[in-house]
Design a protein around this nucleic acid. Sequence first.
DNA 1: AGCCTTTGACCAGCG
DNA 2: TCGCTGGTCAAAGGC
Length: 270
Amino acid sequence: MRNSNREQEAAIREVGRGYDIIKQLQGLLQLKSSNGGEAIPMHELAEPLFREALQSLNHALFIMRSGVSKAEIKSEIVVIESDSPAHSSHESVTSYDSNKRLENGRGKRRRVGESSWIINTSMPYVDGYQWRKYGDKKISGSDFPRSYFRCTYKDQGCQAKKLVQQTSNKLDMPFFQVTYTNKHTCNFQNTSPSSSPQPSALSSIQHNSINHIPHLQEYKPSGYQLLNQGSCLGDAHANNLNNFASTCMDEGNWEWDLDFLLKELVGFAS
DNA sequence: AGCCTTTGACCAGCG
DNA sequence: TCGCTGGTCAAAGGC
């Protein structure tokens, strides 16, 4: 990559913002599709596009952070497909762990039969499922606390859990390691076209995912408003990301047509 | 009213 | 056995 370090930092920041914006749009579409009663649910049209855009942006983040080419990292990144219950396909799985010991080798043993998988993401709180936080712990050797979540529908027998650990805060954009344990047995994934989230569920998505997370608010682009304030995409950041995408395309470093994706996304949102 | 987060206490695995 | 530490519980308060 020919970019200087400063350019690379800016690029990482912009892609991160773009990632956040798309996540906001995804939430907006979920709201609109559940409330609007449209003939063709908008999320059915937009979902594949979102998945592709998020996957591309996430790959870009990995490439720019590590300095490793996309081709080189492709073999290391496993994209979770739809049968993996706890998240959509845009996060990158760094390991799959079905053994009994936690990553630091010291903590409690995991129960036999519990499977887990680890994801690195900049958006750990938005994965299409509803989670209830049940604990928060300062971990020795880590600058950041660890948060414990279980599925909101645990009382219906869903044993899914997740553990969110912030791993870095470089370039004003925190990065998290998310460990999922057990598959969801509930049927309340908010992105599922067949499900119809209750109003209370939708409000909790907004409540939990962004507005209540201080470190996410810190680096949220200033050009758009919060979802529960009735808002949408900010032009300034769309343009920033658009320019960034165009620059990358000009340099011939990127295979993906981010420019096209952005136009499509803005069209859906407007 | 119901569901959420926060937070201190407690439990349990490991060295 | 004991101390350390990660994981979970549950009461309290907020939205």
